Structure formats: C-alpha cells, structure tokens
Simulated assay, not measured.
Amino acid sequence: MSGHAGDPTTVHAAGVVLWRRSPYDGAIEIALIHRPRYDDWSLPKGKVKRGEETAAAALRETREETGLECVLGAPLPVTRYLVEGRPKEVRYWAAEAGAGSFEVNHEVDRMVWLPPTAALHRLTHDRDRPVVDAALRTLAD
C-alpha cells in the first residue's frame, strides 16, 4: 500500500494552534489541552469524520475540546506519525480564539493559556513544536 491521500489505512485528523491576545498585556498566548487518557499536553485536534471537510473538523474538534469558537487563519505544516502501526496525518491551522469558555469534558480535563515559550516547553510531543513555531511565524508577519 502506498501512503497517498486516498489510502484508507491513513487516519486523517485536523487541529489548530489556538491563540489569543492576553487580556493583561496584549501578548500572544497559546492554548494547550490536557488529555487524561494519554496524560499529555497537546493541541486541540481530532479525527475527521467521513464526508467532513478537514477545516470543518478542525473547528468542530476545537469546540468539543476547548468550548471555544475560533476563526481559522493560515494553514500550518501537516504532521505525520504512526499510531498503533497505522499512519496518522494531522492538518493544522492557526486559529484565533472566539466566544465560549472551557468546561471539563470526556476528553479534556484542563486547558491553559501560556506565552509561546512556556507552551513550547509544556507540549508533551516533539512533533507539535514545529506546528506552534509555524503558527507564531504567521502571527508575527
């Protein structure tokens, strides 16, 4: 089997680097979520449902995991990795946080807003760091 986009074995997911301007000093802050099932700090993301647009999945997953609406901005690098031997591909966008508020849910027990450097240190998975770096570059432009 080749790893092309139509490969049915690939798990497709979508997520965001969720950002806001700090209510205190206007500096950029990044949202990270904690998933008790994996005990990790990561970016909001989840599987794309059959027939769902990837961007719509990113918005839906962000709403489900963080309680926040968001506005998608620049597309970010795609991450690819194996989960239990299956290839997984996650498409990300930079996304400005909108209305809503976080509530503990079945997937996520905590959400934090952190300055970029702290967010990069807190992330559990190395593969998430270049995605955050790319988001920060787009926001600096």
Results as ranks from 00 to 15, higher is better:
1 M>I: 10
2 S>L: 11
4 H>K: 13
4 H>F: 12
5 A>R: 11
8 P>M: 01
8 P>W: 04
9 T>E: 11
11 V>A: 07
11 V>N: 02
12 H>P: 06
13 A>H: 05
14 A>N: 06
16 V>F: 02
16 V>I: 09
18 L>Q: 02
19 W>Y: 15
20 R>I: 02
23 P>K: 04
23 P>M: 03
26 G>R: 02
26 G>D: 01
26 G>N: 06
26 G>P: 01
27 A>G: 15
28 I>F: 11
28 I>S: 12
28 I>A: 13
29 E>D: 10
29 E>V: 07
29 E>M: 13
32 L>Y: 06
33 I>W: 02
33 I>N: 03
35 R>A: 15
35 R>S: 13
35 R>C: 11
35 R>G: 08
36 P>M: 03
36 P>C: 03
37 R>N: 08
38 Y>R: 14
39 D>H: 15
40 D>K: 03
41 W>G: 04
42 S>E: 08
42 S>Y: 00
45 K>R: 12
46 G>R: 09
47 K>V: 15
49 K>I: 04
52 E>Q: 15
52 E>Y: 00
53 E>F: 03
53 E>G: 13
56 A>C: 09
56 A>P: 07
57 A>M: 06
58 A>N: 04
59 L>V: 15
59 L>W: 07
61 E>W: 15
64 E>P: 00
64 E>C: 07
64 E>Y: 11
66 T>W: 01
67 G>T: 04
68 L>C: 10
74 A>D: 14
75 P>Y: 10
76 L>R: 05
76 L>H: 03
78 V>K: 06
80 R>T: 14
81 Y>D: 07
82 L>Y: 14
88 K>R: 15
89 E>K: 11
89 E>A: 12
90 V>T: 15
90 V>Q: 09
92 Y>P: 09
97 A>L: 07
100 G>Q: 10
101 S>K: 11
102 F>P: 07
103 E>M: 12
105 N>P: 14
105 N>A: 14
106 H>R: 14
109 D>C: 07
111 M>R: 13
111 M>A: 13
112 V>T: 08
112 V>W: 03
113 W>V: 06
114 L>M: 14
116 P>F: 03
117 T>R: 12
119 A>N: 00
119 A>D: 04
122 R>M: 13
122 R>N: 08
124 T>F: 06
125 H>V: 03
129 R>F: 09
130 P>L: 02
130 P>K: 07
131 V>M: 03
133 D>H: 12
133 D>R: 09
135 A>R: 01
137 R>W: 11
137 R>H: 11
138 T>M: 04
139 L>V: 05
139 L>K: 00
140 A>R: 12
